[in-house]
Design a protein around this nucleic acid. Structure first.
Lengths: 204, 204
DNA sequence: AAAATACTTGACTGATTAGTCTACATAAGC
DNA sequence: GCTTATGTAGACTAATCAGTCAAGTATTTT
């Protein structure tokens, strides 16, 4: 087998960067190629459309983050602490991205998903699939917390979906208003949504 | 003064419809004109750019809904009930839109705001402004609920922003997954976020 | 070294884009 | 009924868009 190329990865990286910072619609194939150092021909050698590339880019991003998510939501970590660590991680990553591009970028799954949902079933399905995988982390943390009596959550899946939605709303608002404040405070909101019982808290 | 025209309204209506159902980026000036029954010349007679039209369309939508919001959040309604009524209202409206276009559309402020936020300061500012106005309804309902001892919310503005973000996340997820379920159940999530105390509830 | 596979190049197409411009129509004030 | 302000008509431009294609290059297997 002949030469190998990292172009596919460069293209998905470039696409995700541009779409995350700007949007799906304003990210042209030409711009993706330019940032990836590719020519049109290479692009369409690897992907048969912009839509297909986008799905691949989202999947690639997921794969890059999966090990990290596994660590953050490790069953060895106390369940409620998993959320705190995850929220901190996302917060820190957004701060880092802000340094590079000047804006709070939110979550690309929501931005891109919301933008294309009524028009591109392929990308929408991809977003859905990844969304569901991520919710699984929430779900099992909630189930563990429930089992330990930390919260009352008879339906962990529903609770996980609700919390996930709330969190993404907060990320979206942060993007729109270019303001991290809500994200910083989300841990408290999460406790409310989760129904953390403060019974044994040492507050006066 | 010569003839009057309802074209401006027809253009903003058409723009909002198309952008809500699809997206800002995929809604072309030509498409807006076609739906409004206008020609290019009329469009650029009333608006100097697509961006400016969009801001006007969002403001027009706000004006159309304001009286309704005032009624839903009337101080004569018990504060927590205001939220229930509002959530019901939005739910019903989305169901109605779904019948017309086949999709759950979420909130245009979030979809459009998230899409253009890093690229169009004019539209972003408009979204921000309307967003803030809407949060005011939440805020005063929360303040009233707190005063009546229904919830504990020492910082009504922060609580309102948090709840608003959670709600919009839920609307966005409903759009992406084309599923009303989360919206139907949001009232319960809202009670958690608000910290409604069930102390006097008549449950077993 | 030949052949086959894997990838790159970049000019090209035809459609669509936002926005411009000039000529024209309509209605109210005089 | 003439003028004037308000609005309409639609052809036009120049840029950009996603996507195509035929010719070429590099690398590995045989």
């Amino acid at each position: 087998m002949p030469r190998v190329s990292d172009m596919k990865k460069r293209l998905t990286d470039a696409a995700l960067d541009l779409m995350w910072e700007n949007s799906y619609g304003t990210t042209s194939v030409d711009a993706i190629c330019e940032r990836a150092g590719a020519k049109k021909g290479s692009f369409y050698y690897f992907f048969k459309s912009k839509s297909e590339l986008t799905a691949a880019a989202l999947e690639a991003e997921w794969n890059k983050n999966k090990a990290n998510m596994d660590a953050l939501f490790s069953p060895t970590v106390p369940p409620l602490e998993r959320f705190d660590r995850y929220f901190d991680y996302v917060h820190d990553r957004l701060v880092e991205l802000q340094k590079a591009c000047g804006s709070i970028l939110g979550c690309p799954l929501l931005s891109i998903g919301s933008e294309v949902s009524t028009q591109d079933q392929g990308v929408r399905d991809t977003v859905d699939r990844i969304w569901d995988r991520k919710i699984k982390y929430f779900e099992s943390a909630i189930r563990d917390a429930h089992a330990q009596g930390l919260i009352k959550a008879p339906d962990p899946e529903a609770k996980a979906r609700a919390l996930f939605a709330c969190y993404h709303g907060t990320l979206a608002q942060a993007r729109i208003q270019n303001d991290l404040e809500l994200i910083r405070d989300f841990k408290l909101v999460a406790r409310d949504v989760l129904g953390v019982e403060y019974v044994h808290a040492a507050s006066s």
